[in-house]
Amino acid sequence: MLDMTMSDLDWGNQRVRLISKGSREPEWVAASSEFFHWLRLYLTELRPLSPLGALWLTTRGTRKPMTYTTLRAVLTRANQKLGTNLSLHDFRHTCAMRLANDPTMTLPDIQRHLRHRDISTTQTYLRARSEEVAKRVQAHHHALSQPHPTPPERSDTSPSWQYDPQDLLLLLGPEAPQ
């Protein structure tokens, strides 16, 4: 991600091109509208920016391409200020957890977005949230306590249902069999 340039942004389709860690192949992945909002604000401050130059630049001292070491230093300073212990990979886990908790996302979709080779890696993010489980269990018990409609009794001499003669008259006219 640190090697991104302006050519790695697809504003219209809200995607970014990333280099996969394992295969080193570039792949387009979806990004949120919030990402593009904050990116626009960031880029407004950095003008002018070269189309093929580094996208992520340092903002302290002379502007130069951000390196992994520089980004770790930024995160270290943020952790010290906030009293947290976040790592860069925590942001990826947060994304994965949010996608896994969205009932409209399928596991293969999440696997593809995270670019996991094996779906079992993606499954580790499937964790039932207590409040959601409680709602589903309560709905289950509520459904069991509701009376179930009983089918009409059937006699061997007559069918279990019949057409209403008035309906037949309306649909087929006066020649309808009664």
Results as ranks from 00 to 15, higher is better:
residue 97 M to K: 14
residue 98 R to T: 08
residue 99 L to M: 15
residue 100 A to Y: 03
residue 100 A to N: 00
residue 101 N to F: 00
residue 102 D to R: 01
residue 103 P to R: 01
residue 103 P to E: 04
residue 105 M to V: 10
residue 107 L to Q: 01
residue 108 P to C: 02
residue 108 P to W: 02
residue 109 D to T: 08
residue 112 R to G: 04
residue 112 R to M: 09
residue 113 H to Q: 14
residue 114 L to M: 13
residue 114 L to E: 09
residue 116 H to N: 00
residue 117 R to G: 05
residue 120 S to K: 12
residue 120 S to C: 00
residue 121 T to A: 02
residue 121 T to G: 01
residue 122 T to V: 05
residue 125 Y to V: 01
residue 125 Y to M: 06
residue 125 Y to E: 08
residue 126 L to D: 03
residue 126 L to R: 05
residue 127 R to S: 11
residue 130 S to G: 08
residue 130 S to R: 14
residue 131 E to V: 09
residue 132 E to R: 15
residue 133 V to W: 06
residue 133 V to A: 13
residue 133 V to K: 12
residue 134 A to V: 12
residue 134 A to T: 13
residue 135 K to N: 08
residue 135 K to Y: 01
residue 136 R to H: 10
residue 136 R to V: 12
residue 136 R to E: 15
residue 137 V to M: 10
residue 138 Q to R: 14
residue 141 H to L: 15
residue 141 H to F: 14
residue 143 A to L: 14
residue 143 A to S: 15
residue 144 L to Y: 08
residue 144 L to Q: 13
residue 146 Q to L: 15
residue 146 Q to S: 09
residue 147 P to N: 02
residue 147 P to Q: 04
residue 148 H to P: 05
residue 149 P to V: 07
residue 149 P to F: 06
residue 150 T to A: 07
residue 150 T to F: 05
residue 154 R to P: 01
residue 157 T to Y: 12
residue 157 T to S: 15
residue 158 S to D: 14
residue 159 P to W: 02
residue 160 S to G: 15
residue 160 S to Q: 13
residue 160 S to P: 08
residue 160 S to E: 10
residue 163 Y to M: 12
residue 164 D to R: 11
residue 164 D to P: 03
residue 166 Q to G: 03
residue 166 Q to T: 10
residue 167 D to K: 12
residue 168 L to Y: 00
residue 170 L to W: 09
residue 171 L to D: 01
residue 171 L to I: 09
residue 171 L to E: 05
residue 173 G to C: 01
residue 174 P to L: 01
residue 175 E to R: 13
residue 175 E to V: 09
residue 176 A to H: 05
residue 177 P to W: 06
residue 177 P to D: 08
residue 178 Q to P: 06
